[in-house]
Design a protein around this nucleic acid. Sequence first.
RNA 1: CCAGCGGGAGCCGGGCGGUUAGGCAACAGUCUGUAAAACUGUCGUAGGUUGGUUCAACUCCAACCCGCUGGA
Length: 365
Amino acid sequence: MLSQPTFVPVGTQATVKSLTPEELEAIGVEIFFCNTYHLYLRPGDKAIKKFGGLHEFTRWKGQLITDSGGFQVFSLGKDHNGAGKLVKITEDGVEFRSHLDGSLHFFTPEKSIQIQHNLAADNIIVFDECTPYPATKEYARQALDRTHRWAIRSLNEHKRLNKKLSQDLKLYGVVQGSYYKELRQQSAEFIASQDFDGIAIGGVSVGEPKDKMRKAVEWVLPIILKAKKPIHLLGVGEVDDLFDFFGQGITSMDCTLPTRMARGGQFLHRTGDAKHDMHNKFKNQIMSACYRTDQTPLEPGCQCPTCKQYDKAYIHHLFKTQELLGYRLMTLHNIYFMTHATQLIRDALKNGTFNQLKKDWLGRL
RNA sequence: CCAGCGGGAGCCGGGCGGUUAGGCAACAGUCUGUAAAACUGUCGUAGGUUGGUUCAACUCCAACCCGCUGGA
């Protein structure tokens, strides 16, 4: 059973980049997020099935969740200029071109679920379309209706396979609807009414302003909370998001940000020095010249393996020289930071001190 | 001493008689279900020195300085 709420780091290719499962466990990670599309292409879901699934393959003892490939409909659908490229959507499914070799593949809801059953994460997600932002209401409605039909197809295939393979994977339905209240609420009603094990909110953090994202979640939450199921917010996870969404009943969210930022040299911190704190966004760049001789840890008082042992000057040097250890130390720290902040939120929610905690961190409610 | 080759931004380095080389480094920034150890931006009177030719020279010419290689 997962703690609630939980932050979910992303390990697209069956690895949270640069860290071992043992290291993840040591910093309090309970679950991470793998991707169906990537693992289907390499090494192939059948290869992983031969091992008995992702758990055996990776030796990870915690939980896992796989994405359906739905997000790649969105992300591969854009090139650098935002034009459509590698994806074609039809009623039956999505035609993808592999970003690796250009080969053609076709995902249907059934196929995505089959692949996910082969991968055998504990939690899986229906095949959906992550609607690009902005979208016209007309397109958003069309995409939403299709996504709902795909949700039912995913659910049916999932039930069939759970029985056939005597597995007990948990399936999440996904709420879409772009930035239209009517569509979002309609989607929430529909997904909540179906026999899913959990409900995910998708189509957010796709380039929209943050207040819009908050609104979209708020339209939907009162409806799906009634279903009394786990609620996962897909692809969200800046530091303030933890407070805004865990505070309202979201039980988990995943985000590439802490790991990706870590590799780009940005470390999460709370206190930092005000001068270099970027607009209260809880991040700083370790390669900044000011850290060249800084003998303090990334976050004073932080109990992560990185901060307990190393100072900024050393990590600065590792990044400047592009040493592998730098990426590892930084990733450890950033994931610990998110996990630890989530832990504080969890405790505060239990103790009734959440508002105080949120105000301390964000300076607002 | 003779000959050949070469001198360009912090470093490396193509091209060219006129309008941006490029790369690295440096500096700053971006990232929200990972085509990402990625990407974006900024690097100011750059052209060994002095003269000459020309409307215009980093580019052509001369001398000198410095370096490398070979020879006496």
